[in-house]
Design a protein around this nucleic acid. Structure first.
Lengths: 237, 237
DNA sequence: GGAAATTGTGACCCAGTTGTTACCCACAAG
DNA sequence: CTTGTGGGTAACAACTGGGTCACAATTTCC
């Protein structure tokens, strides 16, 4: 089982992360300040570390640097508050492997974690015989005349590129990844927008609407992104 | 046995919640104001906490934040009065795990509680040997030629989709979940509509009727949703 | 720094949903 | 068989949820 260490002081976020990772099958440990986090990171073995930048008692930079200096090379994802103009360079220089600005969508975090794990797996994989047994998602999804390429972040319809914004793309991706399931607006806000966005649920409708304009044959009578009155939306392929 | 802490000042609701949780086999403790609730939450261990937002002596936000700051990470469901829209954000940020707007259907509350417990169980489950013993509800229920898919929010009959409204779907779900039991109109109003709705019991009949039109072979002589004269309805599969 | 694109919000309207009433029939008790 | 009460359902009115437009705020890109 994968083990993740979460070093973060905001209780709500800790809660949310714990649950999200838990439901993904991770074993979760948490630390509420830098000191504690550093100690845990040094004394136990993890597959991934999620590290907030602003921490009481010892900030994320220090923790990250110290971990690396002690020979810990577990993948680290750094969380930075919006507005902190901390550029990627500083974080990466200190040994972080990726970073995310708060507030982030859970979906996003999970995706990056997976990516990092895949990387570190494959760098270790030379021991294993044959290809890794991990089935990676095909990367391309097609329904009707529409094709979504997740690797290239590209949507085409009748082989012609469709201009889809970032938000729309993520929304579409989430819907596709949960094909057939009814997803509520709240779930979409949490997974696609962010874990504590101020956004109202009506915003979801607007983006759904504009997505439909772009990928549905007849936007007035959508076939792929279906409304489930009173519940939410559902993607059917 | 599961232990639940209910922090709520409205006596009627406290009563209803106590009974409902009691009949589900929970051990219930209650607090009528924030101070008392906080004290209880800190001094005893619970599996779940139901916390009203508007409370005398200390509001739900404070209680939630204080509990979290004291290291209590029991799942918390927050109850908010209708109209307070902003609460989602603030509540979740402070460490609440879910929220419900009053008046809510008991069924809804129970479902969310179950979901939270399942989540927190699975994050602890790494101790267990082998695959997690998570028994998830099958998600699909079939009787006769009718199939109800709870994940997809979809009802089909003879493999053809049946257009069922939100209320009808929830009603059907409740009946199915209590297969074989006679459920009174009052119970349905409480569980499917809301705990203090002004709705009359005749409304239930109307919805039952329209459900029958949609899923019964012969709506005049229903086989699945049976009337128990003088008592209520019963679902038989 | 300014232009262009993206994103969130409020407003409006429509369609589907929901609750109520009314009328009639079914049931059970005598 | 009769009668009083409970239940089925059609019809209507009121409401609510959802689609989309226009605008403002924000971000991104030259």
């Amino acid at each position: 089982m994968r083990r993740v260490l979460i070093i973060e002081d905001e209780p709500g976020l800790v809660m949310a992360l714990t649950q999200r990772f838990g439901s993904e099958g991770y074993e979760v440990e948490t630390a509420a300040d830098g000191e504690q986090g550093l100690a845990l990171g040094l004394s136990e073995v993890f597959d991934i570390i999620v590290l907030d930048l602003m921490l009481p008692r010892r900030n994320g930079f220090d923790v990250c640097r110290d971990l690396r200096q002690q020979g810990i090379n577990t993948p680290i994802i750094m969380l930075t508050a919006r507005g902190q103009v901390v550029d990627r360079v500083v974080g990466l220089k200190l040994g972080a492997d990726d970073y995310l600005t708060k507030p982030f969508a859970m979906m996003e975090l999970l995706a990056r974690v997976e990516a990092l794990l895949r990387r570190s797996d494959s760098s270790r994989a030379f021991v294993e015989i044959g290809a890794s047994s991990k089935r990676r998602s095909p990367g391309v999804f097609q329904f009707g005349t529409v094709r979504v390429d997740f690797r290239q972040t590209l949507v085409t319809r009748d082989d012609k590129a469709v201009n889809v914004s970032a938000r729309e793309f993520k929304l579409l991706q989430y819907l596709i990844e949960h094909s057939g399931a009814t997803v509520s607006r709240d779930e979409l806000l949490n997974e696609v927008w962010g874990y504590n966005t101020l956004t109202t649920t009506r915003t979801v409708d607007v983006h759904i609407s504009s997505l439909r304009q772009k990928i549905e044959e007849d936007p007035r009578h959508p076939k792929s992104i279906v409304t489930i009155h009173g519940f939410g939306y559902k993607f059917v392929s």
